[in-house]
Design a binder for these strands. Structure first.
Lengths: 340, 340
DNA sequence: AGACATCATGTTGCCGGTAACATCACTGTG
DNA sequence: CACAGTGATGTTACCGGCAACATGATGTCT
């Protein structure tokens, strides 16, 4: 399990390279910066020395003079869900492609003091920008009340801010449409925690879709994104179920819902339909495979990084692509069963 | 979705603080380093100035002089599984607690060139150490053939290296024991990819447990950790199943196995037993809830960081705690059905 | 041929810290 | 009362880059 390599001699600097090539260090810098006016033979000597010594610029020193640190921090919460994770991964890739390093600062979303603390630590590494992959009000709050001296981009996941959000943005409308088409009238939404921006938006959209489609909402229960909370939500009805379709806020919650329904003798989808959101890789292998919304998390992470980089470089940010989630119909939804 | 803050004036430096307090910058440094011999009134003035200006040390500059960067990089692969993710999270926390920042370098495990590339980028930020959360041979290889000039700790997840690994280390033995107790004799292992160290170790342990317990292995099928691969493994037997129990290499694979079994009319656990490994939060809510091994990923991450930090500080590494996985028995396993 | 661009390269100072060394004002002592 | 010792603080050089400016060798033009 253990392997170590000895610490070798110090890394080479431009001065080492310069000495090896018999030039001044400025010439080395010039080569590195792609300056054109260097005599070919000089250029070759320096390039050779660089290769020979395995020279690698010290980015610390560089950012000290340039003031540009080429590193950005992503504030996020504990990564137990797939979504945020994938967002991070996408962001990480995008950052690296742009020559930036992305530091992940994991915040304990329920402890404002800890959030402050973490942000404080992050600020000491002079960052080029901060990406707030904010999902909860606490994070949003902490970010908004902190003075970063750098650009901050606050992304609330795939959900738009309330003001500019058309009611169909998150895709829940398509889910309810699908259920309505199958003949369902009574539906229940098992939501995420109410202090999560995304959860609230889904509730909003659920409610407006219900109205628009002429359905009847028999309740909105706030869970915590977990399978357990889906399971417990079903447990809250001691006798008959109030609805024929359950719209979970994410796939994990839907998983718990399905188990609870099974245990109570309901068959999915024959007796009850269940839907999720996210389309995690596992959703297609639930028993039964889950009807859900496919979200492109990696793309969201990439989008967010691009927005932030635009701010850092002080150029006009590229238009934010609208990433309409896609409804994936599987076998957890079916026609409503005729009353016997 | 968008919020920005203006970039304010430059952050304060020790010189700013020194000027404000009417002392030399060295005195400021002394205060920061906790040097005792400063006159109380001077100390107060400086402290006041620091507060006033919101001074925060520039860690870039600091590491430039000290040569200690207080940042470590974790090399890992694409984070689609829960386990590696949790390991990272644990590592991140442990690193932060020790005053280090952890940079996650996501490697594309199947592209050696890309691995090199990523490592190269990382090396430019002079790192205090590198944590190779290596899971595949490719990563191991890349790490072993790269000259880092800093301590490297190569952790292969919860599995030990072949040489020092007792056959019961990974806990699969307990799983098979459990199955044997239930009367199962014919078992199949649906493993992870064979270039993953952890997958190979589990196969090894599976095989030795089978022998020791007097079971019969009816095959080892290599999947890719995914639910899909579990599903497809079952599909490889066109007619009757060769075993009464299926030991999956992780929970996701087990999920796919369960679905495939359901679709073919087998009931779990009445007809066939299925087990997983990991005990992801969802495993308890599969239909049926999964018998699995609980792994403490976060602790593994923490362990790894501590090992690395010991190397960085050049002290004797703390003994690596043995984290014996715990068997969690749920409802996906049951007594073997009497032949009808 | 002398004055002046121009090109290639060298010199210097700075970024924000750290640390070794220097200084200065006291104090105690013989 | 001169002098060494000590405590508090200031000066200086350096880390590894970058960039403004300086310099010296050519080439060009009149």
């Amino acid at each position: 399990m253990i392997e170590t390599q000895p610490s070798v001699e110090r890394p080479a600097t431009i001065y080492d390279v310069a000495r090896a090539a018999g030039v001044s260090h400025a010439t080395v810098t010039r080569l590195l910066k792609g300056y054109a006016g260097i005599r070919p033979e000089t250029r070759d000597r320096v390039a050779e020395a660089i290769r020979e010594l395995g020279y690698r610029p010290n980015l610390n020193a560089r950012s000290l003079t340039t003031g540009r640190s080429h590193r950005i921090a992503a504030l996020t919460h504990e990564i137990t869900q797939v979504g945020p994770n994938k967002i991070l991964e996408g962001a990480n890739m995008a950052a690296r492609d742009a020559g930036y390093l992305l530091d992940v600062i994991t915040l304990d979303v329920h402890d404002p003091a800890a959030i402050r603390e973490s942000i404080d630590v992050a600020l000491q590494f002079d960052l080029a920008g901060v990406l707030a992959l904010s999902s909860t009000d606490e994070v949003t709050n902490a970010v908004e009340t902190t003075t970063f001296r750098v650009p901050v981009y606050l992304a609330t996941g795939h959900d738009k801010r309330p003001t500019d959000s058309p009611p169909t943005a998150s895709g829940l409308f398509a889910v309810l449409q699908h259920l309505a088409d199958l003949g369902h009238r009574d539906v229940v939404h098992i939501a995420g925690p109410s202090d999560w921006v995304g959860a609230r938006n889904r509730v909003r959209e659920y409610e407006s879709a219900v109205v628009e489609l002429g359905l009847r909402s028999r309740g909105v229960i706030h869970g915590d994104w977990s399978a357990r909370s889906g399971y417990e939500a079903i447990g809250s009805w001691s006798d008959e179920l109030p609805a024929t379709a359950f719209v979970a806020a994410n796939d994990q919650t839907a998983l718990g819902v399905i188990l609870a329904l099974n245990e109570r003798g309901y068959r999915v989808p024959d007796d009850v339909s269940v839907t999720g959101v996210d389309d995690t890789p596992e959703a297609a292998y639930f028993s039964p495979p889950l009807t859900t919304l496919r979200l492109d998390f990696a793309a969201q992470g990439k989008d967010a990084v691009q927005q932030l980089l635009a701010r850092i470089d002080d150029v006009a940010p590229p238009p934010l692509p609208s990433r309409r989630p896609e409804l994936i119909v599987r076998r957890s939804t079916g026609p409503v069963r005729p009353r016997e």
